[in-house]
């Protein structure tokens, strides 16, 4: 499966990364060379092999369903590029 310029534009859209038109051709080449190289995994028969979910056998610990944090709105928005009245500010989403 080869990645072409239009696939690059599609992936870039999914990843929310602006890729200028002039860069798409070169990027398609780079992605193809990486994908071509990882294709060698196809040599391996992995039928019946379970995909790894965790390297260490652990049961995830449960915690009490209780509030353990909060009440720090100003800290939460302190790093925001734009905030208003304790909210994150973004371009208008709903007309």
């Amino acid at each position: 499966m080869a990645v072409d310029k239009s696939t690059v534009a599609h992936i870039a859209k999914l990843a929310r990364i602006r890729v200028p038109e002039a860069r798409r051709e070169a990027l398609a080449g780079e992605l193809n060379s990486i994908l071509g190289w990882v294709e060698q995994l196809g040599e391996l028969d992995t039928k019946g092999i379970a995909p790894m979910t965790s390297v260490v056998e652990v049961r995830l610990a449960k915690r009490a369903d209780a509030v353990s944090d909060g009440g720090c709105r100003d800290k939460v928005v302190a790093n925001a590029p734009e905030s208003e009245h304790g909210f994150f500010a973004v371009p208008k989403v709903i007309e």
């Binding site: 870039a12 990364i17 780079e30």
Partner: peptide, 24 residues
Amino acid sequence: EMYEATRGEGFGDEVKRRVMIGTY
């Protein structure tokens, strides 16, 4: 557009390459 512009400018080439491979 704000997301795309921010991530297009904020990430370097290697990071963009890997995020796009991962997305694919």
